[in-house]
Nucleic acid binder design. Structure first.
Lengths: 157, 157
DNA sequence: TTACGTGCAAATAATTTGCAGTCCC
DNA sequence: GGGACTGCAAATTATTTGCACGTAA
């Protein structure tokens, strides 16, 4: 069982193109995993699929676990956590710095920043390069700047 | 007992000035608390003292609890958490947005940003106005920008 | 006096870990 | 076949809550 996440060849012209695309993406994913020293197991490919097939996303472990369950991909919550961290280490995901209890993972790897709605803890990308950090501080001796995170906190007008 | 945190008049000219200053700060603190609808109880004043007497600080609840214990101010961890949140609501503290499990509270209320050392999770202020956010994005309709947090992540060179 | 605070211990919430069994190469 | 991966449940860590008692106004 649990082959629900496997791609089945669909009929029709449009669907055919979608299938090729999917096959390509899945292939890419498998390659990436392999390149990062991660075996492309059923669970990892399925979770990767859920993460990367829908464009840029911000997920929590809990949320991804729900989605996997809904998609008939039986994974354990622990595996979701492990996989998210492994993907992050492999450079497929970015962990986002917002406070609040939960950890968010972002599939958008390009340099960009975030809006945070304070009441709901909803998180979304700030489109394009609409934020620019003008001056950067001198890092302390012996340290280098790894990354700059900007969080724009929003509340109702 | 537990009067360890109480201010005892010291001898000497310099010390005398320090005492006046302290008395003043404590008085300010009590007023602030009252203004915010918080009774200036022994615990709140003691914790406020630990927080505000040493200049700008970044503390976690756990750390402040330790300090209080070392200073012979017997408070429970739960009270430390409550107090930190009450102070934050009262505008005496700022909660800082970094990821990682722990929540940091900052006694520096002025607009400023932070360095985060990734391995140790150490946090410190970026001095002065060394960071400038050039362009800010348009907030979505019905929302206003509450605050912008910038975290500059550091790692060893 | 009396409502607001506090301490304690137990409850939650998010995440991690240990280990026995499973699957990919 | 063998080591990497997974699932489960139990362990950790950070924080919150319920409730009896204490204390400032």
């Amino acid at each position: 069982m649990s082959r629900g996440a496997t791609i089945t060849p669909p009929a029709g012209e449009t669907a055919r193109r979608a299938y090729d695309l999917q096959g390509c993406l899945v292939h890419d994913l498998r390659s990436k995993l392999r390149g990062a020293g991660l075996r492309p197991t059923r669970q990892r490919v399925a979770l990767g699929w859920l993460l990367f097939a829908k464009g840029d996303r911000h997920v929590t472990a809990e949320r991804l676990y729900e989605e996997a369950t809904l998609s008939r991909v039986p994974v354990s919550l622990a595996t979701v956590y492990n996989t998210l961290h492994q993907f992050t280490q492999a450079g497929l995901l970015r962990e986002i710095a917002v406070d609040g209890a939960k950890t968010y993972f972002d599939t958008n790897l390009s340099t960009h920043h975030h809006f945070l709605v304070e009441e709901t803890n909803a998180l979304f990308d700030i489109p394009g390069a609409q934020v620019e950090v003008g001056r950067l501080p001198e890092p302390p001796p012996g340290m280098v700047i790894d990354r700059v995170d900007v969080v724009v906190r929003l509340r109702k007008a």
